[in-house]
Design a protein around this nucleic acid. Sequence first.
DNA 1: AAAATGACCATTTTGTTCATTTAGTCATTT
DNA 2: AAATGACTAAATGAACAAAATGGTCATTTT
Lengths: 190, 190
Amino acid sequence: MASERKKDIIEAATKSFTLFGYKATTMDQVAKLANVGKGTIYTFFKNKEELFEEILRTLIQEMKEAAETVIDPGSSFHENVHRALFEILAFRTKHQLAVKLFQEEKEMGTPAAADALRKMEDAIVSYIASQAKEAMEREEIKKTDPEIAAFVMLKLYITLIVDWERRGRALSKEEIAKLFELYVFTGLSQ
Amino acid sequence: MASERKKDIIEAATKSFTLFGYKATTMDQVAKLANVGKGTIYTFFKNKEELFEEILRTLIQEMKEAAETVIDPGSSFHENVHRALFEILAFRTKHQLAVKLFQEEKEMGTPAAADALRKMEDAIVSYIASQAKEAMEREEIKKTDPEIAAFVMLKLYITLIVDWERRGRALSKEEIAKLFELYVFTGLSQ
DNA sequence: AAAATGACCATTTTGTTCATTTAGTCATTT
DNA sequence: AAATGACTAAATGAACAAAATGGTCATTTT
């Protein structure tokens, strides 16, 4: 049976991490927010890092679920990848904890934040890679290193959505989809 | 007639910027390295920033020249891109200044380093874009936004060399060339 | 006279100290 | 047995002092 206290702690910590980031969240604050003695936190979690990791695992889980809602086994790999990536990135900007971590890593270089982002990247890449591997086995796409393929796809998405926007004009959803298709699937060759 | 002293200063400053980055390079150090009084530097350059900018302009110029040595107007875009890519890969150690700036911007957020990278990015992108545009007009490759195409190529290059290496195993020259070909020209589709 | 110089100055950066804050513990309370 | 918060050792950062740095300019060298 999951303790009510544990749930309170996780809820309070999630709020605090989301609002203030990793570093600026103190265990005293979490205890107060959860209406719990500080020591109680340590009966459930070994330390601050483990508390954070549990919350992060949940976030990644939620991302996966969001992707899976959107994937249609009847559709082609490239349609599914496109939909899933778009969903994940939309989720990422929508989800305030991810946004906060992104900002904290860039502005303060908090190692725990960098770690968290790395884990999110890993989760996304390994998920896409497994999908890509299946598509390769079904001979839907060329056989190549699925991890690199997944990584390239993720980076291309970020390039098109985030980096290109930083250079000025942002691209529409449709443009992004077209460009993704062009560079990942069909290529520039005539 | 270009002064010997000016040349000495530029040489010393280039070495120092390359070795220590922008911030950690001091004008005293440059003066000493160039065997020149500090004041002499200021007879040639208004300030540290202008000294740096002149060096940066030279670097960009050299990159362009290196690319042009290798590019053959008679060859296809595809072939030229490949040759340019190999040229860049072979002379990667020469890019040490760029590497250092990349690192400095990431680790310390030095504004001058960020500025410099942006300028290099602009120069590279507009150069590739003009080449790509010509190739499109010759109907060698599909018609699409040449700036985006150039940007995607640059980012893919960085993804394969820098970002993937950061994830563990680095790729060989041949692997990089193959992957570049796969994602830019032929695509994953069967 | 023109070019080069380094001592000098204002400002910024770095090093140090120390009071405060924080993560984590544990004896006590519930 | 579970929960707690006062307690401690370690981390942090504010405040101050010292050192370093970019840039100037009166003097020296050519």
